[in-house]
């Protein structure tokens, strides 16, 4: 029974894969040349790096919805019943060498996150990568026993988690009067994007770290 299912699924999957491959080879040339359009509009966007321009200006609403999805995922995890106890013990096996190394590395990672965020305007980098570096620092601090897992986030932490989405929505609402969604005025575009990116970085870092720190049970014991 099981083998029959295996064979059927594998057969259908390979047939589907072949069809997909044939379609990819057979695709007509795209009617709209997106890269040229992006290059033509680039000086209107307030940044020089095309990927950042697409993420935060031309298709800013995608990024707005994306941070909302992340926040929702974290809320979903927080909403699940968890076995929270009164004694929050830290991973006891933390190595002193790891602890010292982390104490040196964490500020450096903060610096790198700041640089990556700032670099996003004119070269590869930006809020996503900077947030990921921040989250990495958080996970490392937890593994070294310097940062306890999150049982329930306090008021300050909650504000930090939400600030990216809130700033983004505030900017979107403030610009609504022009009649188009998230169309920045040319002279302010660079500053607005940097402000949104900075708050996004903070929220992304906290949310991504939170996905790990809420789920892990090395800090919250049953």
């Amino acid at each position: 029974m099981r083998t029959l299912l295996n064979v059927t699924v594998l057969f259908l999957a390979s047939a589907f894969g072949l069809a997909l491959g044939w379609l990819i080879l057979d695709l007509p040339v795209a009617a709209v040349r997106l890269p040229e359009q992006v290059t033509a509009q680039l000086e209107m966007s307030g940044v020089v790096h095309p990927v950042t321009a697409v993420l935060l200006n031309f298709r800013g609403y995608d990024t707005l919805l994306e941070i909302a999805v992340l926040l929702l995922a974290l809320l979903g995890i927080l909403a699940l019943p968890r076995h929270v106890s009164d004694h929050q013990h830290r991973p006891s096996s933390a190595n002193p060498v790891l602890q010292t190394l982390t104490r040196v590395l964490a500020p450096l990672m903060l610096l790198v996150a700041g640089y990556v965020l700032w670099a996003g305007a004119h070269r590869p980098g930006g809020a996503f990568q900077a947030g990921a570096v921040l989250a990495g620092a958080g996970v490392l601090l937890h593994l070294a026993g310097l940062l306890p897992a999150w049982a329930t986030p306090g008021r300050t932490l909650r504000a930090g988690l939400a600030v990216g989405l809130l700033v983004f929505i505030a900017v979107a609402v403030a610009l609504m009067a022009q009649g188009t969604l998230l169309q920045y005025p040319l002279s302010w575009a660079g500053a607005l994007i940097l402000m949104i990116e900075a708050s996004l970085t903070l929220s992304l870092g906290l949310i991504l770290a939170g996905l790990y720190l809420v789920l892990t049970d090395s800090g919250v014991q049953k």
Partner: peptide, 9 residues
């Protein structure tokens, strides 16, 4: 950009 994000995330 994606390479950075993929390696980290």
């Amino acid at each position: 950009d994606i390479a950075l994000a993929e390696a980290a995330i």
